[in-house]
Write a protein that binds this DNA or RNA. Structure first.
Lengths: 219, 219
DNA sequence: TTCTTATGTTAACATTGTTCACTTAAAAAA
DNA sequence: TTTTTTAAGTGAACAATGTTAACATAAGAA
């Protein structure tokens, strides 16, 4: 609660920064305008000189949130130097890790409450940049390489995404005991998913023991 | 907005009923005490004579909601007269249908916002009655019948649940175009999941064409 | 009939997002 | 330099929300 000069300088950026830091720790519901004014040492209505209303700030947070999400979850999807199975496996792990590390942000991005803002954003943005598009492209690559069954790539991508979204949501919304070992559950989940999607009699070499083990069984 | 006598008679039940009807149509967020007082023709604070606070009403709604959920989604899990694959397939369909038909209630039951209430409820209730316990039991049956791989039944049940939760959430939280045919996506998802979980060289007879087709391939 | 208690009402409160009239100071124009 | 315009901040006020407290009513027990 530092007292600044009358004219702050970069109040808008500070609002955004404080809001993101807040959501990193507490739920978006608890982010009130009072929190922001207290943290910046300004009045309760100062924010309206920089954002039309609270939702406009949230919109900015969501925008930045998706940038962060794409940045942190898609590197393996875009890096073609690794084996495809590995890229899928590692991407799923990053996805869950993002949700676990940023539960409030994840809910903000993928929850229902601000779906209208999300949809408005995604309709403007170049769709090819989004994480889902990157996933679908990789699925297509997987089909061409003979790793995945040649079915509707959109539906296959949905299947993968919903699987990761499901386990992530269960984890961050309180359906796993702390004792549950997420890595173990993820491995089980991924093994099941990949087994269900992989084309018959395909041999893949992976650097990940789990994957090698089950893709090239002893018999 | 009917004007009743001073003493209403069964106001508590009416609050509950109105709240459930409301959530059937609109989001839980929009359920205010004013909505309830207007609908019953009582004052804003009348509800406090029947519930400690708003959360206590929500707790009752959640309790009733889980009853409804269990009732509508677990009949096939508990009915052993059908083939196991069919029971899994139909249960998953009921699960998604429940979420689609009761999106606000589903979010209330499985979302983060009232997780503390849910946990308090589930810790009191007999766990064997819950839907997840029924699922896990059916998974164990599946292992014994040789349908499913003999792995950790808890983890397998989690995998199934998270898959259904994931697709349901994506649907009701606005990630599917209206044009998407849910049935098709569900079939793809289920086929993938079952393929990944089924034990090798098991022959099952199903009454559902999709399942017969892929469990007993031509070769 | 009286007393107690359950169940309702009204008034008030703090917190929320929001708007409006005002003030300040920085930048632009003279 | 002085004046004017404009961006950026303030405080007071509003309605809506959940909640509490003091009071009112009526039903059932004594």
């Amino acid at each position: 609660m530092i007292k600044h000069d009358y004219h702050h300088g970069n109040l808008k950026e500070e609002f955004i920064s404080i809001a993101m830091d807040f959501i990193a720790k507490e739920d978006t519901e608890k982010l009130t305008l009072k929190v922001l004014s207290d943290a910046t040492g300004t009045s309760r209505s100062a924010i309206y000189k920089h954002f039309k209303n609270k939702d406009a700030l949230i919109e900015t947070i969501i925008e930045k949130g998706f940038d962060k999400f794409d940045l942190e979850t898609t590197p393996y999807l875009k890096n073609e130097s690794k084996a495809l199975v590995d890229r899928f496996y590692l991407t799923g792990k990053l996805y869950i890790e993002f949700a676990r590390t940023n539960p409030n942000l994840y809910r903000l991005l993928f929850g229902k409450k601000y779906a209208h803002i999300r949809e408005a954003l995604l309709s403007i943005k170049d769709e090819d940049c989004s994480g889902f598009a990157a996933l679908q492209k990789t699925v297509k690559d997987g089909q061409q390489q003979g790793l995945l069954k040649k079915e509707d790539s959109y539906q296959q991508a949905i299947v993968i995404w919903s699987t990761m979204h499901g386990i992530s949501s269960l984890i961050i919304d309180g359906f796993m005991d702390v004792a549950d070992v997420y890595e173990k559950i993820y491995d089980t989940l991924f093994e099941t998913l990949l087994t269900g999607m992989v084309a018959n009699k395909v041999k893949i070499i992976s650097t990940i023991p789990l994957l090698n083990k089950f893709l090239q069984p002893a018999n």
